[in-house]
C-alpha cells in the first residue's frame, strides 16, 4: 500500500516524475499548507520498488506490504 502524508509533503513532484509506473498524478487542489500533494492515481500498477519512498525529501511517502 502507498501512503502519502499530506502534512509533510511539499509538492516537489519528484515522485510523480520518477515512479517507473506513473502511479502518481499532479493534484489540482492545494493542501492546507499551500502545496499540491500528489494523487495516487494508479495504485494497482505499483510494483513496490520503493523508489518514491527513498527519493522523497520529506519522509512523506511510505510503501507497506499490506
Amino acid at each position: 500500500m502507498i501512503e502519502i502524508n499530506d502534512d509533510l509533503c511539499k509538492g516537489c513532484d519528484i515522485c510523480i516524475e520518477f515512479c517507473p509506473l506513473n502511479v502518481f498524478l499532479k493534484s489540482d487542489t492545494l493542501n492546507r499548507k499551500g502545496y499540491y500533494v500528489p494523487v495516487i492515481a494508479e495504485e494497482d500498477l505499483c510494483v513496490g520498488c520503493r523508489l518514491c519512498e527513498l527519493l522523497c525529501p520529506e519522509f512523506a511517502i511510505i510503501i507497506t506490504n499490506e
Binding site: 509533510l8 511539499k10 516537489c12 513532484d13 527519493l55 525529501p57 520529506e58
Partner: peptide
C-alpha cells in the same frame, strides 16, 4: 520539528 526547513525539492531531505 518535522517538516524540516529545507526548500521544496532540496537534496538535503533525500
Amino acid at each position: 520539528i518535522m517538516p524540516h526547513r529545507f526548500c521544496v525539492g532540496c537534496g538535503c531531505g533525500t
